[in-house]
Amino acid sequence: MKKDQLLTRRRALLAGTAVLGAAGAGTAGLLLSGSGPDTAPVRPAAPAAGPPARAVEAVKPSAYRLAPLAGYGPPPGNGPQRLEVRHEPYLRMSGRGRTMLLTFDDGPDPRYTPHILDTLAEYDVRATFFVCGEQADWNRRLLSRMADEGHVVGNHTWSHPLLTKLTRSRIRSEMERTTQVIVDAYGERPQWFRAPYGAWNRAAFQLGADLGMEPLAWTVDTNDWTRPGTRSIVRTVESGAAPGVVVLSHDAGGNRSQSVQALRDYLPRLLDSGYHLTVPRRTTA
């Protein structure tokens, strides 16, 4: 399959507007925005730059699932937007009313991500997916589906390493390779970045800004990676619900059946309680 056959419908539309130019420089703040297909793993015709990616089955969840240490963007132009370098990630988002963000890390995984997308579609809710490049590279159709259904895809590095142990060149490679996969399959440059394990350092902030990405962490950690039980995950989300909260869950990196079921339980309850589940949006100066 030729590379241009992997373009999503969304990217085809964006290509028509790319000639209008890239977005203006700088960021003034962050806001909250309103909120089938074949999902089998697909091997790309040409791998991303660097060592060949491993198949999903070959990635051992234990290799990168440790306890955390702690968008709707412009069309892709000639390069990333220039950003001010932050010294800490955003932990929550500003917005009006009872707004919250749902975020899912480490995917996409063909065993769990489609079920999460199905639930979000059922309730017409948008979420943010921080994807790992080596997972996304084999599951580009799931990124295409995310684009088609209005979700935001963020950069979660290529192989989910501990960035504080890497050189600047390795960190840049982890970010750039993942960005390229997202652009090819999703149709837009990622505007958001999340460090694996929540382990941020100066190099991560600087390189993320160089690539046009803002750092987004979380407010409520479901700890679903420990498989505490569906009811425990639901209680954590519901007890932590509040305006501006960013919820951390996972759609890959291990058995995520509890995360899938928990979403089906707490999502309608949050909506019934008057919460608006949305995605992050940046504003330009």
Rank of each mutant, 00 (worst) to 15 (best):
D106M: 10
E188R: 14
S62T: 15
R172Y: 09
T226W: 02
H250I: 12
M93V: 15
R189A: 12
L163S: 10
G154S: 10
S232F: 00
M1I: 09
T167I: 10
Y123V: 07
L263M: 13
R10L: 07
A262T: 00
A67G: 11
M1A: 11
L6H: 09
L270N: 02
Y64V: 14
A18R: 12
G73W: 04
L207Y: 05
D109A: 03
E149L: 12
L270T: 02
L102V: 01
A15L: 14
L248S: 01
R86W: 10
Q191H: 09
R145P: 03
R264C: 02
Y266F: 07
P280E: 10
L117E: 04
R282N: 03
P51T: 14
Q5W: 13
E176L: 14
R82H: 08
S257C: 09
L117A: 12
P215K: 12
H87W: 07
G198I: 07
V125C: 00
P280C: 11
G150M: 06
Y197S: 12
R126T: 14
S257L: 13
K60E: 12
R126F: 05
A53R: 13
D137G: 03
E238I: 15
Y90D: 07
H115T: 06
L102N: 02
Y112W: 10
V153H: 09
F130I: 15
Y186L: 02
A67F: 12
N139Y: 01
R11A: 15
R9L: 13
L31A: 13
D251Y: 03
Q206F: 03
D224L: 00
E57A: 15
L30V: 15
Q5R: 14
S239I: 01
R202S: 14
L143N: 11
L163Y: 06
F193A: 04
A195F: 08
N139M: 02
S259L: 01
L216G: 08
S62Q: 12
G187A: 02
N255P: 04
E214F: 11
A67D: 15
M175I: 15
V152R: 04
A45R: 08
E84A: 13
L117K: 03
L216P: 04
L142C: 06
Y197T: 13
R194G: 01
I116K: 04
L13H: 08
I171W: 06
M100L: 11
V181H: 02
R126S: 13
A55E: 09
G208W: 09
Q206Y: 00
L69R: 14
D4H: 11
T222D: 00
V42P: 01
G26C: 06
S239C: 05
T167E: 12
P161G: 07
L83S: 03
L20W: 01
S239V: 09
F193E: 07
L207S: 04
D210E: 15
L163P: 07
V246P: 04
T278A: 14
V56L: 10
E188Q: 15
R43D: 05
V246S: 06
T157C: 10
E176G: 05
N78V: 13
G107D: 04
P110Q: 04
Q180M: 08
G244C: 08
G29Q: 06
R256C: 08
A195S: 10
P47C: 00
E122F: 06
A204G: 13
P161C: 08
Q206P: 00
N255V: 12
G274Q: 05
D251Q: 11
G71H: 07
V245T: 14
V152D: 01
G244A: 06
F130R: 15
P51L: 11
A12K: 15
A136V: 06
R10E: 07
